[in-house]
Design a protein around this nucleic acid. Sequence first.
DNA 1: CGGAAAGTTGACATTCGTCAATTTGTGTGG
DNA 2: CCACACAAATTGACGAATGTCAACTTTCCG
Lengths: 236, 236
Amino acid sequence: MIAPLIRKLEQFQPLSPEERAALEAMPSRLREYRRGEVLIEAGTCADESALLLRGCVFRFKLTPDSRRQIVSIQVPGDFVDLHSFVLQPIDHSVAAATPSIVARVPHRRIAELLDKFPHLTRNLMWDIALDGAIFREWLVTMGQRSAVEQIAHLFCELYLRLERVGLVKDGGFDFALTQQDLAETCGMSAVHVNRSVQTLREKRLIVLDHKRLTVLSLGKLIEFANFDPAYLRLLK
Amino acid sequence: MIAPLIRKLEQFQPLSPEERAALEAMPSRLREYRRGEVLIEAGTCADESALLLRGCVFRFKLTPDSRRQIVSIQVPGDFVDLHSFVLQPIDHSVAAATPSIVARVPHRRIAELLDKFPHLTRNLMWDIALDGAIFREWLVTMGQRSAVEQIAHLFCELYLRLERVGLVKDGGFDFALTQQDLAETCGMSAVHVNRSVQTLREKRLIVLDHKRLTVLSLGKLIEFANFDPAYLRLLK
DNA sequence: CGGAAAGTTGACATTCGTCAATTTGTGTGG
DNA sequence: CCACACAAATTGACGAATGTCAACTTTCCG
């Protein structure tokens, strides 16, 4: 069930069989969430971290005057709030974009695991650092790219991250975010998202229909978005 | 010399006298940089991390079509690229905004330190996670705030971060970024930065002159920017 | 089948970017 | 100390990108 996480962590450095076994045996509480349900509330102190097994969740923050910004989109294998292991109270909320299954791992278990396998700490540090690298690229996107490029860039990123965990089929993937969600991700209005998506359709780069996104030519989409996948640390 | 770093790390959890001593004795190579000089080049693999002792440096990324986005502004006490300890090659460059003094700490030394003081690992994890929290808030700023609010928000953040390391004097601090730098930080044009700064002046919130920023009323600036300092994890 | 949510469209307002000229500030060599 | 050159800041005019509002259509889901 947590194979995707292991696969991801090993992109930093291979795990020993013992480490892998310990991760697989890591005690956790499975829980399902309905679409829209809030998993974690900003400002609270949790004693466990959420590992996304199936579905899609996003992290978001609210400004004091209640505008919402989505700061991250998580796919299966992502340790959604691993950082809450050290950073409490948590500075953002987490909500389910689709029906999702999450393993909640007590911090105590993580601590025990790290005491037993100190080397694993580096893998987790790497995961937290990778999280930061994605934020940096999002900053570049929001600061320097036009609306259409922003959306194309996000689609490229999701394509590759989902491919890493084996969730790309027939050149596409399930995409449950509404245009309003996309708007809050890219910092633009929903109307403008709508028009930007249509531009991508007209350019025959994507098909987005019935909550499914098909990338017609990943090469062309990457070129259009000025996308450089280096920041995702994908190993083949 | 590295007192500010220790002061910062202890905001997560207190260090033992031994840990503190080990940090102070941490071998490093001091180096000075001139304004504009590049410390670290994106895409390279470094075997050391840079700890900023004096001055101001910023991290930035270039898009494939050569637009520049500043993703972080570092002040003394910041471990500028601690994440390069686990994340190689580095995904961004670092350049000096003012003449700066940096301690370069070999990764081998960091590894030795962590082997000896496993608990210290949590403090460094915290520092990397805090880095991420700031990115998240920057995403909120770029996505949801107007140009004037963005700049006001950045000024609030810098004020509090500099205050933490004792660099706020007479209600203000040295501020060496040019308006072009600010533009590349906030993702807007330099002309628009200029007009936004003037708005803040007209509202009698700040004085910005001769590379010095004075905040006339921090309370009012915070209110204007919709600023919530929680994400900075400042302890009094 | 019906209601609500999501997507789409058009008209118009606002914010912000671009360009180019001008002024101000800064550092350097004589 | 002055003169010069260059970087930075400022200004105005204009255009492009994006937001807002409101109506309408389509899809989703019980």
